[in-house]
Design a protein around this nucleic acid. Structure first.
Lengths: 274, 274
DNA sequence: CTCAATTTGTTCGTATGTATG
DNA sequence: ACATACATACGAACAAATTGA
């Protein structure tokens, strides 16, 4: 048995779907450029070590998706205008997070059996006595890309019920006076869509998703905001500035030394150490 | 047509695999608790609106994975010791990154046609004149979980060729004197495995993966280290302290006021340069 | 202990989908 | 396009183990 068929065998997914997913990826990663003619059926047959019909089935899928178009006698070509992916930048700081969500387009979803309170891990603070539960779907260009399920401490909710009903909870929370935020963190893992999520995001059951959990802990150690956010995996991108901490320190230090001086330019001096 | 079968129809993946993935998720999210008896076949039949045999096939998959076990006449139960997933914490700062990889278990892979130099985007700095290309696979408990493809500037490589051959490039780089790091960032998106990656990581073709790109830019604006790292999606977890920037500022400000006080504990003083 | 209800395990027939040559 | 082989999915019927009345 050849190397490549061992890879296929690892999967229970039909061959032509696997082949399609590989070709789709080549287009997305610009390995196959827009407008370019892709390999001939014969070449693909040899490369993937599958029958011609299987290649054709894979190409059919991508044609339906608008990623390829074929012309008899000429060949198969990559579409000129591939869909843009990974447009949503996951926030990595409080300010960025509040900023990105402040003018989100979202639609509230009714939940039949709202959970009374969130289930917290040890490091996620203490439970508040009462929570409000809300769920909404985020849209871009009419396409859903995220589902947000929020547990908001009732005490916080009562401060501005109308605002919380109409606007993203976190941005309302950030604007409230007198709330001391002791901790705010977000964890991200990759999971797969359950039927409810798949329905809301209009993706396949079991399709990869990014599961984000965002917890805000107040000055007393109480988790006042607990959000489970699920994004389509092809919508999001994460950009981490590995030197951000150092940069922030420098900025503050500089500010401390020469008070009021701007942190100057886009470049930072940094790392001449070692 | 019912709601749920609409969801199924969106996918070309076999039904029993979809059902299995939903049930797997319930176990992972503790919706079904360890040791608990899950719904009977008849109930599951009704819930998923599929035939009994299909439910059985799904359960068979999870039994093979060690997540479920059934007993005739009693029922089907969630395993007591579900496999731990998401154990690898993706680093979000330079120090954490250097720290996590410094004693990695990895195996070098020979690459037939190493690319001459990386393809950089605008924000990723200037190309160095020459690069060395290396690829390795990272293991935990004999299981592969990551593939690292590194382009290292030749000028840097020559500083310590032996070290670079034997140890993770980034930790060697971090230890080199006189290298000024101007930028270091990492972007993460979710993709799907191509045949080569699937083979190396022993996952299905098209299975979800985390694609990380890590770029280090030196003082002259040259990208000296460009790594494409691919992780199995079920291996990694990302923890973001949203207040890290603010915290770092505070820390430095405090240090500025009371000069010379050690940053305490086993933590490296770090970045006290400049 | 037996009986009935419950629950998983197995098998058949049929129809359609997948993959090859 | 065709013939062949195997996988997927359904519904139904029956067998075997477990439980509790």
């Amino acid at each position: 048995m050849s190397e490549i068929s061992k890879v296929y065998d690892r999967s229970r997914v039909p061959l032509y779907i696997q082949v399609a997913s590989v070709m789709r990826r080549r287009i997305e990663t610009k390995h196959w450029l827009p407008g370019q003619k892709i390999s001939t059926l014969v070449e693909l047959e040899r490369e993937f070590e599958v029958a011609r019909v299987t290649i054709r089935q894979a190409i059919d899928i991508l044609r339906e998706e608008g990623l390829l178009h074929s012309q008899q006698g000429r060949g198969t070509f990559v579409a000129e205008t591939p869909v843009s992916r990974y447009w949503f930048k996951l926030a990595t700081s409080w300010d960025a997070l509040v900023d990105t969500i402040k003018d989100n387009v979202l639609k509230r979803i009714k939940v039949d059996l709202p959970p009374q309170s969130p289930t917290l891990r040890e490091e996620e603070g203490e439970l508040a006595p009462r929570y409000i539960f809300m769920r909404s779907v985020q849209y871009k260009d009419g396409e859903p890309y995220g589902v947000v399920s929020v547990h908001l401490a009732d005490s916080v909710y009562r401060r501005a019920p109308d605002d919380f009903r109409q606007h993203p909870a976190l941005s309302v929370l950030a604007g409230l006076k007198g709330i001391e935020v002791q901790e705010a963190h977000q964890t991200v893992v990759i999971g797969s869509a359950d039927p409810v999520t798949a329905g809301l995001l209009r993706i396949e059951l079991g399709a990869p998703i990014a599961e984000c959990r965002c917890v805000v802990i107040d000055g007393k150690g109480v988790a006042v905001y607990v959000a489970d956010i699920i994004y389509r995996s092809d919508a999001i991108k994460l950009h981490i500035d590995l030197l951000a901490g150092a940069r922030a320190s420098l900025r503050t230090a500089a500010r401390g030394r020469a008070k009021g001086r701007a942190a100057g330019g886009s470049q930072v001096p940094l790392r001449s150490c070692n």
